[in-house]
Computed example of a mutant assay.
Amino acid sequence: MRKILIAFRKNSFLIYSLIPAFLYIGFFALIIGFYLLKLSLTKYAGGDVVLSSTLYNYIKIFDDPMFNKEFSDAFRRTLIFVIVVTPLQLVTGLITAMLINKSFAGRGIVRSILLLPLAIPTIVTTSVLLILFSKGGHMTSLLMGRYSFFPKIFDYEISFISNPYTSIGLSIFGKVWRDTPISMLILLSGLQQINEEQYEAARTMGATAVQNFFYITIPLLMPSISSVLILRSIEAWKEFIFPYILAPSYPILGVLIEKYYVQLMDPGTAAMVGIVLIVCILVTSYVLTYILNKINRYLIRA
């Protein structure tokens, strides 16, 4: 108890400064969580309440074959989206962070260019991809040889948006391109905390660049890597805009929520999908934290 009081006194300013943020976030999280749970336990038909305090929306995942297939497909696409997007953002963020962490002429310009995706609104990025890859778009025209500088590859028009693989692939590409600067900034802050003397000491002992990367950079960068993986996985689970525009026929969970809430006027089912999404985010965050802690302890011992 004495140690707790001493620690509290030492960090009292930090604790008091965080209290408003915790109250703000916690208050609205409770309100939204309560209302979401209430909606998920309500059956709607045509926008009107049919039955309250019921598990109907959860039961129909298993009892309604049509909804079961729609939900299962959306969940599978979302899981694939998360599994692909999260490590890709880590890799691209790490590569770009290591690039601009070095001193070279024009580093400020390169850093500004790499941050450019953040300055472009998401809807603009998505619209450009839609124009490029939709049927009759520039990419189809390019592959059909309509531009003199590129050879003809296909004799027919291709709609990348109408294909389940290419449409989700475009959504993944857009998401990674748009959010890589965020990962880059988090990892760059971690790289700048690593003392250059550790690399110099390792080089004097004959360590190669690869050994430095795996035995110095990665272990000391684990807090930043953990932040990137957890934050980016959360963002990937709740992604909406890219799949909504680029893969409208192949919805993920975020798009499925919009369909039931707006188009079908069924807030109960939409809220139930939202609850499932929250559970997936919590489980993923816990699993990632557990695995990353194990890896961190292994790297420290090594």
Rank of each mutant, 00 (worst) to 15 (best):
G190C: 08
E239Y: 01
N195S: 15
P181F: 12
I123C: 11
T122H: 07
A202W: 08
S134K: 14
I194P: 02
Y165S: 04
R232S: 14
G190P: 02
S227K: 03
V124I: 15
T204N: 14
E200T: 06
E235P: 00
W237C: 05
Y165V: 14
A207N: 13
V210F: 15
P151H: 10
Q211I: 03
I194E: 04
P151S: 13
P219R: 09
L231C: 04
F150L: 13
P181S: 13
F173V: 12
I218A: 13
K135V: 04
L191A: 12
L115Q: 12
S134R: 14
S127I: 09
S189W: 02
T126K: 04
V176I: 15
T204C: 06
G169H: 08
F154E: 12
I153T: 04
N212K: 06
L130E: 07
L221G: 04
F160K: 01
L187R: 11
S224Q: 02
L221Y: 03
F149G: 06
L185S: 06
M139G: 01
I120N: 02
A209P: 00
A209G: 07
N163F: 10
L118F: 10
L118I: 15
L221A: 07
K135L: 07
I161K: 00
I131A: 12
K152F: 10
Q211N: 05
A207T: 08
S189R: 01
I172A: 08
Q193T: 09
T125I: 15
G136L: 11
T217P: 06
T204R: 07
T217F: 02
V176L: 05
M139E: 00
F154K: 14
R146S: 04
T140Q: 07
Q211K: 10
K135A: 14
G206I: 15
P117Q: 10
E197G: 00
P223G: 08
R178H: 12
V124Q: 07
T166F: 13
L115E: 10
W237A: 12
E197P: 00
R232D: 12
S233R: 00
L229V: 11
V124P: 08
G136A: 13
T208I: 03
S171D: 04
I153D: 11
E157S: 14
S226V: 01
L129S: 02
S189C: 11
S112C: 06
Q211M: 10
I216M: 05
K152P: 12
K238L: 01
P223M: 06
R111Q: 15
Q198P: 00
S134L: 00
S167A: 14
L221D: 01
L191Y: 08
L191S: 06
M222I: 09
I172D: 08
I168N: 09
F213S: 03
L188C: 10
V128Y: 05
Y199H: 04
V210Y: 13
I172H: 09
F150A: 08
A236N: 09
P223Q: 05
I194N: 06
L185N: 05
F214M: 07
L188D: 05
D155I: 00
I186Q: 03
S189G: 14
F133G: 02
L185V: 12
S171E: 07
L170S: 04
T126F: 02
E239F: 00
I161R: 00
L143D: 06
I161E: 03
M144C: 04
D179F: 15
A209D: 13
I194K: 03
S183D: 02
S148N: 07
S134A: 11
A202M: 10
V128G: 12
G190H: 03
Q198D: 01
T125N: 11
F160G: 02
R203I: 11
